[in-house]
Amino acid sequence: MGGVEVTDNKDIRLNIGRSVFENPVFLASGPAGYGLEYINYIDMRKLGGVVTKTISFEPRAGNPGVRLQETPSGLLNSIGLENVGAELFFREKMALLASAGIKLVISLAAEDWDDYRRLIGYVAERDNIEIVELNLSCPNVERGGMAVGTDPDLLGKYVRLAKELLPETDILAKLTPNVRDIGGLALAAEEAGADGITAINTIVGMDIDLSSSKPVFKRVRAGLSGPAIRPVALDAVWKISRTVKIPVIGVGGISSVDDALKFFMAGAAGIQIGTAIFYDPGLPERIIERLETGGIPSRIEYLTGKTERIEDGGKAGDNSGAGCREQG
């Protein structure tokens, strides 16, 4: 932490739309389940919030076969959005979570447009849904998921519907890195009214079982998370935060306090911890303690001093040149 300046700004609250969080550190959607499972491990009330496991309208059994495979500093998963469904979640789990004092961001996903309308319509009938995260980027489901999250027009359409039907709720759009231009997608979400961007979802990967000469996962491809993807996530946050004005929540491989600081320096307004809680559940609280004592580190200066936005809006993005061209 030596080189990171200590800022005077000790107010570490985070605003997303009208939502205010005591600090900018969240548990990411997925690893922590609904939040309740980790209640003896992490002091949830100290967190900025917990992003729930993704909820779909109908319950989902998730994917068959192997669901987890470790890789060097990474983890491939093919869970397939197993969840109890909207009705059970909102009827039972919500109240338990609220009574435990957990500040929730509810993650939502759908299979197609009709399913999405139904889900958002259902959420619209519930009271006190402060903020949701649209998971338009899961690589582990047959339909919906990444297909929506890779098309800026479709992404915009989904975000607009949520803004329209949930006028009292703030909307985070969670983006996939499996695209040529994540900045363009972020811009599409912002223009559709999103209150913030979460980046990134897992990176598509696969593995092969040598003993059977078959793919490890039944769906063949799976989602990679963990420290292995951290530089990719950091780069995405860097790009997005220079493309949109709304807050960016960085997620992907954060596994130390120093990692977290880098995300803020790259332009994140908040961060989420996912895979790391499997092996280091104390990490989110250590990050919060560091931010409380040292403040949130300032964004680093743009290397060339230029602050131009990426203007191609997802049409002809540039991932191939490691972002060199967009820096001019």
Partner: peptide
């Protein structure tokens, strides 16, 4: 089973 969270949260170690 290979396990992620070991707490029932992540649903990584499921059997049908």
């Amino acid at each position: 089973s290979v396990m992620g969270c070991s707490l029932g949260a992540c649903r990584g170690c499921t059997v049908p």
